[in-house]
């Protein structure tokens, strides 16, 4: 603070508190609604404090789901989402580490062509190639499978660039020493480069897990089988079902479950997250 202006400081706190309130309000309401009895939330104004059905509602949606939404129990959806998020995050990190290693530590023909090919993926989000990509996945027999949910999404220009950037800052002496000691490239990668990259991997993991968990259009395209539904996708059917059978507490419980894992990750790994976010965008 440059000068002491009590009024300005007061206004600043007030604005921030208002901002926090607006950010938190919808989450609070959904959280509270998920603990109510159905008859208490049929009509506005709904209660703003917890009811006594918290455990019951969550047990219900995990094992039976929301009636009228045709989507079944939520527990398997959480499992599908978890597999998808972990598969995407780990897959992206693994293949990007390998590509960045190849691009930084080797000289070979077509090196720049490979680099720009990877760069192109940035310009081709799923949204601009919906039908043809669907066709490729269908032709490969990957519809309704975990492979189909994860593999087509794990190419990553951003992660490759981040690791490339980082490898360029690793002192040359390390590679030199490894070579003098007779270590091959793979041993150097595994024993030296990978341990050095731990922080970057952690930061990237947070961002990519959230990215993977929150996928919507992709699972919508390639899963038709109810057993492969992810929880974020199921939200649309909840909203549609709400017109006929407004089971608000249960719908709210599904919403809370859908945002819980990424929110927990972001809050527990905040330091990595902020680092990862600012760095991947450079």
């Amino acid at each position: 603070m440059v000068e002491n202006r009590p009024l300005l400081t007061f206004v600043a706190h007030l604005t921030l508190l208002l901002g926090v309130a607006i950010v938190a309000l919808p989450i609070w309401i959904v959280l509270v609604t998920s603990s109510q009895r159905l008859e208490d939330v049929i009509q506005a104004p709904i209660p703003m404090w917890f009811g006594d059905q918290l455990l019951q509602n969550y047990t219900d949606v995990l094992t039976a789901g929301v009636q009228g939404s045709f989507s079944g129990a939520v527990a398997p959806m959480l499992r599908n989402s978890l597999v998808m998020a972990l598969g995407i995050a780990i897959g992206k990190i693994a293949i990007s580490l390998l590509s960045a290693f190849a691009i930084v530590y080797f000289r070979f023909p077509l090196r720049m062509l490979c680099f720009w090919t990877i760069f192109l993926t940035l310009m081709l989000p799923v949204e601009v190639r919906i039908l043809p990509t669907y066709k490729v996945v269908a032709d490969l027999g990957m519809l309704n499978s975990y492979a189909g949910l994860t593999i087509p999404l794990i190419a990553s220009a951003t992660a490759t660039f981040l690791f490339r950037q980082f490898f360029l800052t690793v002192p040359d002496e390390l590679a030199e020493a490894a070579r003098v000691d007779g270590a091959g490239p793979l041993k150097f990668f595994w024993d030296i480069l990978l341990p050095l990259s731990r922080t970057n991997i952690a930061a990237l993991f947070v961002i990519l897990f959230i990215y993977g968990w929150n996928q919507y259009l992709w699972p919508l395209l390639i899963t038709t089988d109810a057993s492969m539904t992810t929880i974020v996708m199921s939200v649309q059917r909840m909203i549609e079902a709400a017109d006929d059978t407004p089971e608000w507490p249960r719908i709210a419980a599904v919403g809370v479950l859908a945002m819980l894992p990424p929110v927990v990750i972001i809050l527990t790994m905040q330091r990595w997250f902020v680092k990862g976010l600012i760095e991947t965008e450079k």
């Binding site: 989450i27 959230i210 974020v232 939200v235 859908a258 945002m259 929110v263 990750i265 976010l277």
Partner: peptide, 9 residues
């Protein structure tokens, strides 16, 4: 934390 919340949610 809204960053972690999916657009659909």
């Amino acid at each position: 934390w809204p960053y972690a919340v999916a657009p659909a949610i």
